[in-house]
Design a protein around this nucleic acid. Structure first.
Lengths: 338, 338
DNA sequence: TTGTAGGCGTTATCAG
DNA sequence: CTGATAACGCCTACAA
């Protein structure tokens, strides 16, 4: 270690310099009551003169509480930075943490090896709780963490059937809103470009669409799956068009895929929304600036972050009365494509 | 606290279950030598049966070492995510950490209040060292940290005259490269759009340009300052054009500003590079895709991150022989604008 | 090879 | 109001 002579001052030294006992020094430092003005003064002096700052490790060990929580991104860090979704979740988390005095620590695993190391870090006392943004359904981390007794809140419904509280957008009803809107607009044959079958968002948005259509007595066979990518959206749109020539509306499970669909439609000379209406999902920045501006379903991402931290803090308080999970309402944003 | 009955097992219990002493248990857990195969076996059993995982806080307290370092971003978190510069630095840091067994913790201050809380977090034992990405010259944090005895490495030359090791791109010589290139191309009147006067990057790139021109006996009066923004670059270009009509080349201190300059030139019907050559700085993604593709000076951002962590690890080893700071070489990337 | 005892820096309990 | 004294969970001489 690069020793720099000057040792870090400890509470003991503060007490000695102030001429009081460790207990008293501790009391004034923690702003406790039952301490004379004189003692308080002396300790304050000692603290500043020594440049003392309490050792959090020791404190945490004694208090069994670290005053910091982790935001865990079970994903390659490269991808995370740069993704506006995470930025917005983070903003929400930070807002939710305001005034709590908790320090937020961002953890991310790049490769599989990190993954284990991270689990270890989390389960061994470094943080009081964890917010986990986990996109892959099969992720083991959440289960590990709760098994270790760490308070955890997930972002997004987990696929594995573990008992982990989570916060998610109401993808099911959001998709329902979109479908209902298309029905109300008088469209007859409504298809969908769905997400992957193995992701909760994909599944939920598909079933929401399907439920609403069935309730209205409409067919629900015009389905094409894609991987949430632009290209995937394009391919799915092509596929849908050839398999169901009579289609006059389509609900697309993400804005990016919807943009892809729009490309295809323009290429084929199909007018939007006159010939075929399109509704996306997310209300990402893309939706507002696409041509034509995309009608879409907005999910409240910042609020998602805020709600996650609120939910975690509630766990700290022991409010076990809380619902295990919460779904945030979505909102249909009407623009020009439907 | 949300108590869940099942207490976290401690080393004591492991020892008891294994029928050995705490010391022996500790030894096998830390893979020490001098322990019988039988004891090792017993402890291993106990560990798995109890689901024991060592309490890092206690361990750190005893060992005076946490095995984790912080990457501190002294900047609004919102802005950080989404900025490709940080993403690349992070990638480099992560690469530099590979195999070291150190956990990386990302800290960022949104507002001023956080700032103090963060300093406190860092100086009170949570991490073994910190990598600080600090853009504002007047930032107090680095000084505070070194004052507390924490090993620190900065990203970017600090303006304050504190003794903090830092890693930076060689902005001075990079700007020199650009200037020299323009001279070699036969340009006569070479101006510059410089960065802010109060940022190290701005200062260094300006003086590099100035030095090279002076050495070649050229005038160095065609200078316009801007704030690294697109709009700033546009305004500065206008300014330069009216003040120095004879200009036939300009070195712009950032790609984004250079793009702004390009806009202006196109608007005025000035051909690039025939009438006026342009060289940018950064080799950001923008440079390659702008029209025309921008000749620029590349700074090795990933390597910057890698070098920072290497430098920090060296401090841990006590290699005080190291140079206090290091400048990474830049490279001129020739494209179409010069 | 193993166990005993003391310490890491704080907080908390409980007599003075 | 104040000060011993015992945790908190782990590591590490030192002794056996």
């Amino acid at each position: 270690m690069a020793e720099d002579g000057r040792e870090v001052p400890t509470l003991d030294e503060v007490a000695r310099v102030a001429g009081v006992s460790r207990s008293t020094a501790s009391r004034v430092i923690n702003g406790r009551t039952y301490v004379s003005a004189k003692a308080r003064e002396a300790v304050a002096q000692a603290v500043t003169s020594l440049g003392y700052s309490p050792n959090m490790l020791a404190r945490s060990l004694a208090m069994k509480r670290t005053n910091s929580i982790a935001l865990v991104v079970s994903e390659h860090g490269d991808r995370v930075l740069g993704d506006p979704f995470f930025a917005r979740v983070l903003r929400g988390v930070h807002a939710g943490l305001a005034g709590s005095g908790l320090q937020l620590v961002l953890l991310m695993a790049q490769d599989e090896q990190d993954h284990g190391q991270m689990a270890n870090y989390l389960t061994s006392g470094h943080v009081d709780g964890a917010l986990v943004v986990s996109l892959h359904g099969e992720d083991q981390l959440p289960a590990q963490l709760v098994a270790s007794g760490l308070p955890v809140v997930l972002c997004g419904r987990p696929l594995a059937k573990v008992e982990v509280p989570y916060v998610d957008a109401d993808n099911f009803n959001g998709a329902g809103q979109a479908a209902q809107f298309l029905i109300d607009q008088g469209h007859r044959q409504i298809g969908t470009i769905a997400g992957p079958r193995d992701m909760a968002v994909g599944i939920d948005r598909l079933s929401g669409w399907r439920r609403t259509l069935s309730m209205a007595g409409r067919p629900t066979d015009a389905i094409a799956h894609a991987d949430f990518s632009l290209e995937g959206g394009m391919a799915a749109m092509e596929q849908l068009l050839t398999a169901h020539p009579g289609l006059d509306a389509v609900f697309v499970a993400s804005d990016l895929m919807a943009i892809g669909a729009l490309h295809v439609l323009r290429g084929r000379g199909i007018r939007v929304p006159e010939d075929l209406a399109v509704v996306g999902f997310d209300d990402s920045g893309l939706a507002a600036t696409s041509v034509p501006p995309l009608t879409t379903v907005r999910q409240p991402i910042e609020e998602l972050g805020r709600t996650m931290t609120w939910r975690l803090l509630a766990q700290f308080e022991g409010d076990e009365e809380l619902p295990p999970s919460v779904l945030l309402p979505t909102e249909l944003i009407r623009r020009d494509t439907a």
